[in-house]
């Protein structure tokens, strides 16, 4: 399989990268890990005339942790997310997503930024990121803006990023006290699989062993973007956590999922819906355990 012809840019600074994007716009594509872009290019699904690698720009690989939260460069690899002690300590569900993504070889190349920008509704990192309330920084020559991931995804493969913008940072706040999150993806095999359904749940309790103060449930693979299970979230708030409650939340989430089943997809709509229920209650269980300090 041959890659189509293109010009290759490997800017050393972000400014330079932004200038290139400003110049070429839609004719250019940003290359990070390449595990999606180069595959699409080999299959001729994407044929950018300009490919702009940002992996040599130092700050694109950064990880900054503070009591307030976490800032990650887009080229921080998925393998690094999976292995980061700082991340596993406070953002366990994100780690779980990273560990579930593809296989070790893919994780070594794939980046967190790429996993977000590709905007695949079955991607492993966005559900947890959305559940944690993450934001992304989008930069161009004339300035930058911060966008919540809640509003970032517009459809399969579609995002808020303008042709001349580069995603330069992912920001996640530190979860409040008595919080926890869980992420589970269901594929066919134990690894290296694209997901059939994936769910991330995040809850905050109002005290140790308290009532649910805040809940966020994000469902993947059941719409053109990741979906929030709003009614399930509402159902949880103000309640005392229990497996029965989580099962009810699962059922509510099922009603909100709008999966499309077809020969092309990896499972029928009915199965996906059922799995939303199962995974919602299971991830809530994980979140609860973490919130309790387990």
């Amino acid at each position: 399989m041959l890659l189509p012809k293109f010009d290759f840019h490997e800017p050393a600074t972000l400014e330079e990268a932004c200038q290139i994007m400003a110049e070429y716009g839609t004719r250019a594509k940003v290359l990070a890990g390449g595990t999606d872009l180069l595959v699409d290019m080999k299959k001729k699904l994407s044929t950018p005339k300009q490919v702009v690698s940002i992996t040599r720009i130092k700050e694109m690989k950064k990880i900054e942790t503070s009591p307030d939260g976490l800032k990650l460069g887009p080229c921080f690899t998925v393998a690094d997310v999976a292995a980061s002690e700082a991340i596993v300590k406070r953002w366990r569900a994100l780690c779980a997503g990273a560990k579930a993504l593809g296989n070790p070889l893919v994780r070594n190349l794939a980046t967190i930024g790429g996993n977000v920008v590709t905007a695949s509704p079955s991607a492993d990192l966005p559900p947890s990121l959305i559940a944690y309330g993450a934001r992304v920084v989008l930069k161009k020559t004339s300035g930058e803006r911060v966008v919540s991931l809640d509003h970032f995804f517009l459809g399969a493969g579609l995002t808020e990023i303008a042709p001349d913008e580069i995603l330069t940072e992912i920001q996640i706040d530190a979860p409040p006290l008595y919080s926890g999150a869980g992420y589970i993806n269901e594929g066919i095999r134990k690894c290296r699989d694209c997901n059939v359904v994936n769910v991330a749940s995040f809850i905050t309790l109002d005290g140790p062993d308290g009532f649910i103060k805040n809940a966020r449930i994000v469902m993947g693979c059941v719409g053109s973007t990741d979906l929030r299970a709003v009614s399930a979230e509402k159902l949880l708030v103000g309640e005392k956590p229990s497996e029965t409650l989580f099962a009810r939340a699962g059922e509510a989430a099922m009603q909100e999922a709008a999966p499309r089943g077809s020969a092309e997809s990896r499972a029928s709509a009915e199965y996906k819906k059922d799995m939303v229920g199962v995974l919602t209650s299971r991830t809530l269980h994980l979140a609860w355990k973490e919130a309790l300090g387990h």
Binding site: G34, T35, L38, V39, S53, L105
Partner: peptide
């Protein structure tokens, strides 16, 4: 994974790395 090489200490699929990278 049959194209695996170790790049800067990390095993990667060399089919997904541009030579220029």
């Amino acid at each position: 994974g049959s194209c695996t090489v170790i790049m800067d200490g990390i095993p990667v699929n060399s089919c997904l790395v541009l030579a220029m990278q």
